[in-house]
Amino acid sequence: MARLSRLYAPDTPQLVQVRFTRPLAPPNEATPADKLDLLAGWLRDAARENHVPVHGWMLLNDRLALLATPPDKTGLARTVQAVGRRFATRIQKGRVFSERYRSALLQPGAWVLPALIWLERLPVQLGYVDDAGRWPWSSAAQHTGLASAAARWTTEHADYWHQGNTPFERQAHYRRLLEQGLPATQARRVEEALFGQWALGDEAFLARIGRDSTRRLLPAKRGRPPRQTVVESEPRSDEPREEDASSA
């Protein structure tokens, strides 16, 4: 099966995840802070170099995930590739990503905030920490008010800004959402869209971005197309019917 081309639509947020070929450290060893610090810096620099507004990001021992609105078809790919090149020369020789990154297009106003919560809760979900805001290698500390001004480099999405009229209100409200996490059905829809590399939104959103997207937005329906029934026409009045022809 041919691999899918990159999914892109203008001015549309994307959730992205790429896994590392080998984890930065085994599960029984301490978190490799020095390596994660390097990767975080390379991600920040690569996003700036490629003019990609990043709304959220997260690093673990085995993966990188981010939420961004790329300015063009290649901005995200160039950003991930730049991180990979530095990774391969400073931390781990050879191939550093186990596969091409996976991505999903997201409908603003409906799925951007759930996707942000999903990615910033990964350290909790996978047992690294109990409080997502305390994981140093993600944007959660910025969104919950725990990060210093110097550590803030992401571009807040409008869906985050709508959580309150002041920074304090936004941070407090988002902190509650992050602590609660997503309902299981909502988290599953985010994961299915990301791992399947599809778009996530309602019919109007899909119709709007479908005109300018680089490929189809949803998986094709399984199975063969329905078989069409052939309707036989009645014989003309001047043609013999089957019983008449047999008796002739």
Rank of each mutant, 00 (worst) to 15 (best):
R236V: 01
R121Y: 13
D37G: 05
A46L: 06
A140R: 06
Q197P: 02
L39P: 09
L59E: 03
S139A: 03
R211W: 02
A82C: 13
T229L: 11
S148C: 05
D37R: 15
I117Y: 03
V96A: 12
N61W: 12
V54Q: 03
A132V: 04
L76G: 04
G75A: 10
G84W: 05
W153D: 08
R134N: 05
P32D: 05
A47V: 09
S138E: 13
L126P: 08
V231H: 15
W57A: 03
F205D: 00
Q107T: 07
L4H: 15
R208A: 04
P23C: 02
G133Y: 01
L218N: 14
R152T: 00
Y160K: 00
H162K: 10
H157Y: 13
L116E: 12
D238Q: 09
K73G: 02
P26I: 12
L4G: 11
G127E: 05
S213D: 11
D34T: 15
R215E: 05
V231Q: 15
T166Q: 10
V18I: 14
L24N: 10
R19Q: 01
L24T: 03
T31Q: 12
V80F: 02
A193S: 00
P136G: 09
S148Y: 10
E29S: 01
L119G: 11
A68P: 05
A140H: 11
R216G: 01
A132H: 00
S138I: 00
A46W: 08
A40R: 13
A193F: 13
R188P: 07
S103D: 06
A245T: 05
D37Q: 14
P183R: 09
L64C: 13
R44M: 08
R211T: 09
G201E: 10
L60M: 14
D244N: 03
W135Y: 10
A132L: 08
Y128A: 01
F87D: 10
E203C: 13
T31E: 12
M58Y: 03
R170G: 15
P226W: 12
E191H: 01
R224T: 12
S213L: 10
T69I: 04
L116I: 08
A9V: 04
I117H: 02
M58N: 14
G94P: 12
A220S: 00
G56N: 04
M58W: 07
G127P: 06
P10A: 05
T185D: 07
T69R: 00
A77P: 09
P10V: 06
S139P: 11
D34H: 15
P10D: 03
T69S: 03
V230A: 13
W135N: 12
V112I: 05
T79C: 06
L36S: 08
I209W: 06
V83W: 05
L15F: 13
D202R: 14
P13Q: 11
R85L: 10
A149E: 07
D212Y: 07
D34R: 15
R152G: 06
R208S: 00
L119Y: 02
P53E: 09
L177E: 08
A199G: 02
V231T: 13
T229M: 07
D244K: 14
E179I: 13
A9N: 10
L218P: 04
R152C: 00
A40I: 02
V129C: 09
N61T: 12
Q197C: 11
V96P: 13
D202V: 15
R227A: 14
V96N: 03
